[in-house]
Every structure is written in C-alpha cells, then in structure tokens.
Design a protein around this nucleic acid. Sequence first.
DNA 1: CGAACGGCGGAAAGAGTTTTCCACCAGGGG
DNA 2: CCCCTGGTGGAAAACTCTTTCCGCCGTTCG
Lengths: 344, 344
Amino acid sequence: MGSGYVTLEQVARHAGVSLATASRVLNGSTRQVGRTLRDRVTASAHELGYLANASAQTLARNTSSLVGLIVHDIADPYFSSIASGVTRAAEDEGLVVVLGTTGRTPQRELELLSTLRSHRARAVVLAGSRTVEEETTRRLADEIATFTGRGGRIACVSQEGLPADTVVPDNRNGAAELARHLIGLGHRRFALLAGPTNLRTARDRLDGFHAALSAAGIELDPRNVVHGAFTRDGGYESTRRLLAAGTDATCLFAVNDVMATGAMAALRDAGLHVPRDLSVAGFDDIPTLRDLTPGLTTVRLPLEWMGEEAARLALSEDAAEEPQTVSVSGEVVVRESTAAPTAG
Amino acid sequence: MGSGYVTLEQVARHAGVSLATASRVLNGSTRQVGRTLRDRVTASAHELGYLANASAQTLARNTSSLVGLIVHDIADPYFSSIASGVTRAAEDEGLVVVLGTTGRTPQRELELLSTLRSHRARAVVLAGSRTVEEETTRRLADEIATFTGRGGRIACVSQEGLPADTVVPDNRNGAAELARHLIGLGHRRFALLAGPTNLRTARDRLDGFHAALSAAGIELDPRNVVHGAFTRDGGYESTRRLLAAGTDATCLFAVNDVMATGAMAALRDAGLHVPRDLSVAGFDDIPTLRDLTPGLTTVRLPLEWMGEEAARLALSEDAAEEPQTVSVSGEVVVRESTAAPTAG
DNA sequence: CGAACGGCGGAAAGAGTTTTCCACCAGGGG
DNA sequence: CCCCTGGTGGAAAACTCTTTCCGCCGTTCG
C-alpha cells in the first residue's frame, strides 16, 4: 500500500525473522544480534531496497534528527555565512537542517519556532539580531522556554539576553577599537550610518563607537547620525540623506558591511572619492565583499565559525543549567577605504 | 510521559470528545463537526497548549510538509539567492525547507536525496550544475527515479538531462550574446576563465561564447583558455596562471561572477587596470557583487526567481507525464569593467 | 546435578495521529 | 407508522517503528 515503500515488516518477513530483530539489525544499536540472522536481515534489506521511515522513527524514539536554523534572510551574505557553519556542524553529526526565514518579522520567528517544535526538532539555532522591544523579546523568550521545557535545545547567534546559549560578537569593543584606529588616522568629525533604531546589534556597535569617541574627547554632531534599514539599500539611502543635508565629516562608519557597501555606491554616484573625500568603514567583514574597491576597512567576525559554534552549543549533550555565552571578538581589518583626512 | 508534550488524546479527554472529533477539529478538514463540540475542542487545545506532532501526522497521512533543497555551498551567493527563492515559495505553501549541502560531492548528493526520501519529503529542489560524468549522472538519475517512483517530486535548477522538471538558464545563448557585445566593442583576442572541465554549466557557457567568436571569424588561442575551480579563488588563481604565462588578450571572460571577481583581484594585484589594460566580464549578475568597482559586465540571471520557479514546479500537483523544462534567458548587463580595447 | 546466569530471539505494547467504518438521531416520503 | 437519508459522533484499525518484557537455550558455579 504505502505508495511503494518497503517497510521493516516486509524485510523481517523476507528474512524470516521478527520485527524486533530486523529493527535491531538495521537501526537500533543497543542489542546484539547473532551473525546468521544479522546477515540474513541486511541481505533482505538490501535486496528489497529498504529505507527506514524517519517519521516513524521520530515518533517511536521521541527524538528527531532535525536541527532548526532561523535567519532573517538567507540571501544576505551575513546569514548565509552563518548558515554555512551551522549546516557543516549539523551534517557532521548526521543531522538534517531545517531552514526558516523570518523576513525580519518577529511574528514569523515565533511561528517557525512553533513549527520546529511540532517536528520535535532536537535543536535550533536562532541567528539574527533582536530588536530592543520588550514585548516581542518577551514572547520569544516564552517560546524558547516552552521549547527547551520540552527537551529541545536552543542557541542564539548575536542575541544576548535570551534564555539560551549564545554566541555573541563583542560589538561594542569591536566598534570601539575601530573608532580608535580611525581617530589614530587623524579623523575628528565622524558620520554614522546607524541602522534601525530598535536593532540591538546596531545600537551596540553605535554605542561602542560613540564611547571611544567620547573617551578621546570627540563630540559627535547629532546631524551626522542617520538611521535607516540594515541593508545595502538602506546604506545607500542613508548616505544620500546625509549628503543632501550636508556634512562636515571626514569619516563615515556604517554599522555593517552591506550598509557600507551602499554608502560607497552612494558616494561614488555623488562623485566623491573614497578615501580621499571621505573615509568609509564597516563591520562584519563579509567574505563576498572583500573584493570591493577600495577594500573596505571593517571589523572581522568569524561568521562561519560562529554558526558552527552555535550549532555545537545547541547540540552539546551536557545541558548546563545556566545558559552559556560565548563571546567572540572582532578584529579590525584595515583596507584602502580609510585614510588620513585630507588637510583642510 | 512524552517529555511534557500535550497529545491529542489529552485534548479530547479534556473536551469530553473522542479522538476522532478532536482530530477533525484541529487538523483534518474533510468532515464537519458541530458548533458546540468544535468550540469545546479548540478551547481545550488552546488551554492545554496543544501542538500537533508532525511526525505522527506524517506517518498517518503518509505525506510530509518537508521540501528538500540541495545546494553545493550555501555561502556561495549564487546558491543563497536560489535558496531565497525556494524558501519563499515553500513557506508560502506552509511547507518547511530542509537544507542540504553537498560540498560538490556527488556521493553526498545521493545521500541527501536518500535522507530526504526517508523523511518522506514531498518535493526536492536540486540546485547546482551537474558534472558531465556519465556514471554519477546515471546514479543520480536512478535515485531521482526512486524518489519520484515513491510519490515524491523533484525539480532541478540548471541541470538539464535528468528525469525531472528543470529550470535551466540559457547559458549558451547568454554567453554568445555577451561575446557579441564584446566583439562589438572591438575585442578580437579573448582569454577565458573556463572553470572546471567537467562542469556542465561551465562548458555550456564556454561553448556559447566560443560559438559566437567562431561565427565572427575569431580564433581562440588555446593558451588563453585556462581551467580552474568555479570559485573566487579559482578565478584568482587561474588569472595569475594566465598572466604568468603571458597573454595577448584584451578581454577576459570568466564563466561566472565569482571567478570574475577573483580575476579582477588578481589583475589589480598585478598592477593592471580594468578595463584599460584588460576588459573583464562574468556571468550570473550576483546581487552582492553589483557594487564591485569597476562594475562587472555580466549576464543577468534571475536567480531568486529561478529558485521560486523550481519550487513551484516541484510543488505543482498536476504531475505532467513528461518532465517540463523552463528555459530562462540571461540579459547582458553592461557595466564599467568592459570597454573598447586600447589601440595597439 | 540442580540452579543461577548470560545471550539472543520474539511477542506485544506503545509512540500520536488519521481515517474508515459503524451507530445514532432527526426528519421526510410512502 | 416505517424506512430511508443525511449529518454527526465514536470505536478501532492503520501507519511504521522502537523497546520492554518474557522465554528459551546452553554454561558455569556451588
């Protein structure tokens, strides 16, 4: 019946053994089966083309081989790098990755988590920065609690403050170190492409940058801080607004690389030369963007590694009582998009 | 027992109805349930926090809500763009995407397909070019036949010749059109970054380009055709070899954008200016690479759309007897990386 | 030499749904 | 007044495995 699928029972019958024995030979590992029967079963299974029904196994074992991966947008190289690490780690363990994309909708994130729960996913990696809004964070925390309460494991990338293991880049220090480097080049007037106001990651990078400026006694003109989408086009748009309003900055810091890319495009379109007219720096060191010219000065994050590490955390058996946090520091990578400000 | 999960039976008992009724209210749609009981059931389900067990449903219904997506490398923007389209289409249907990465190993591709079969995936999208090798293609075709024979559906992106629906870019014509444009600019001596010798996509683009040259009476110096990996680093390396051997070409065509990116980097490192010293063109129009400078002349493929379309094909109910092929044509996009050859 | 034991095979009880069939009830036509 | 019909609820089989428990056999210890 079952649309042509061979069942374990058929294999057992073909081999002349019981269901239990067939199961023990082909899947279960707990108990030994005698050489003779073992061979008969494997031969039958092979001959009939048996393939275990994963759903039935999940149901019977009450644990699946699924690992969830939730990202905002898989086409964004930031997330696809993380995804690459996650899949590598999961596939190493013989697990299967379920990919969900939120499109940056908190509601969708909850739905996905619930779907994964209904599939009894063994673990979930949640990538993508949280907003600072109380309400959605609380609901997400609830959903996470339910998930872990049911025996699932969760790890987050870049989302501190949730009740789960977390791999979190040191955004503040990375941005601060970058700021110090730029100050060292001689810059004093900065413009900031700050991203969305409510995005945690954006805010942390901003804060770190700002703190370093303050420490150096540098004021930041509020008109030089412009908010916009966390995307390439957001960077482009923000930069146009900045230029339209007129700016005295000699250096522009975009809180991520894709925004910086948009900024460079906008500057180019405006006939400005980087770094001669304006220095530009980003954050993340997206691999695909390493070939931009001029090369983008940025803060390198080991994105694939972060994905791998998150997956490892989520899959580790030693369920620590307290959520662990792995902090990863960024490394300032100096390229040609930044230079000393031209005199004047 | 079941690690805290609420079962349908508990809901039924709580609502004072039978299992069948509860199932009909909460999941099945075939039959009507009276208003009173319906409300009681939904109320109980909500109160107890019921969430259906997807594995049990898959088992009982004998069809799952999983859609497989197999790519070579999710960090490659080519694949992540396609993946973005596939996930969008799948999520629109309320389905869940299972992501598998092959690392370009044919063996791994077979394993993944088998895993997806064991999960009773409803459909699979297979992205990534095939090699021209008979043996692996045959085995893949076998596996695909088994899959579809069991009621699954498969669609391929960019892999003609398999027994499945296919979305295939018109690589030959795209490359030919690009060649004609370049010839129109005045180029006569071309160098080709040809990618791996055994990769179907690479070969088709090569052939199309070559055909257009021949049609224009242009000879291609075999020493100007260099093979290498289909990656950014492959492009870099191939270009270095080309330069080391010395070349008289005025225009370099890389069979995909990421190789072209590597080529531009290598040229830059060699102190050559694009397009003054050498024009460069690619293929794909990867979104993330649109901000390179100089802008890369290339052939645009609607990658996300191709992923969506493949998913739609794989999910369409009207299982046509014969595999369908959707051909998508590329559009030459002219940017600054190509120019007329400098006199001399 | 009897009893305890260790190893291995099988029967059967789940795991959580869906779905088929049957039963019941009210209403309408003969 | 009886029978058939249409609508609704329930009992139970099915889906495919895993795993517990039980029984059998041949050893080995006391």
